[in-house]
Design a protein around this nucleic acid. Structure first.
Lengths: 139, 139
DNA sequence: AACTATTACTTTCATATTGCAAGTTAAATT
DNA sequence: AATTTAACTTGCAATATGAAAGTAATAGTT
């Protein structure tokens, strides 16, 4: 994003310009917490994102360097989407949002268990999750 | 929000339905990291939110229980906006977004210093900031 | 080789949201 | 009493979103 079209240089504002919409973080959630890797799989998420919006978000996420697209070696019709390091490092944001909602609305279901691990030490939870993602997503 | 208009019961999705737009978290940022408390002050933030959008976001935030509105005892034209406990507990989300952007874009300025404190221990940083906010915002 | 199915989009169009600018209301100040 | 200030509200144009149908390329089937 160019300086000129930026609202400000505030890090929070800039972050929101990248992922501050109702879908981008949900796509990242799927890449983080499920085995979904293809367009079709992402489209079939519970929330039923419209196909044109999914396409546009994937382009944004890729051009912001949060995901990487690769042709499936087993079927060249298919593309596989992977998180980059930069994308993986949004995991704490997603986990914090999840824990926050789970705390304030009992109907909200968290992708990861509200384990003792979390209550003990959030940061080591982040690290262990990030480690796993690095293994599955990075080249 | 009613079950019927919910995309899903996923905590991440529900959280994004509450604050997943380009402005809500920015308003919370101002309440957290500046002394801004009135409509006019919030409107004059660097990002220049449109007045009707600010009004609508304040209504949303209040009806979601993230902020609380009070008439200024010193001037009854003025309203003061304060964070609730629920609002304050979004601080980790905002801090993580901020740190993430600051890491990946050197032009991004963080509201709080990228201090040794953060590098040492994020969680104790959260606690100390939350403590301060509790003091200034809660009744 | 021809046909069908599948995958990843793109296009179209109706609806909803955003943003700018100007207007309103009530209370404080002069 | 007149003016100013603060917090909105309203109207309207521009942009973004969402539903549905369409397209292009490759894979699988006959």
């Amino acid at each position: 994003m160019e300086d000129s079209e930026r609202r400000s240089a505030c890090a929070v504002s800039m972050a929101l310009e990248a992922v501050g919409d109702k879908w981008s973080l949900l796509i990242l959630r799927d890449l983080m917490f499920s085995e979904k890797r293809t367009y079709g799989e992402l489209q079939n998420s519970e929330e039923k994102i419209a196909t044109n919006i999914l396409a546009s978000r994937l382009v944004n996420l890729e051009s912001n360097g949060l995901i990487r697209k690769e042709t499936d070696p087993a079927d060249s019709r298919r593309n596989l989407y992977f998180l980059t390091c930069k994308g993986i490092e949004l995991l704490p944001v997603i986990v914090e949002l999840m824990q926050w909602m789970a705390k304030y609305n009992p109907e909200a279901s968290a992708c990861i268990e509200q384990s003792k691990e979390y209550k003990k030490d959030r940061v080591s939870l982040y690290s262990s999750l990030i480690k796993k993602l690095n293994k599955n997503h990075l080249k």
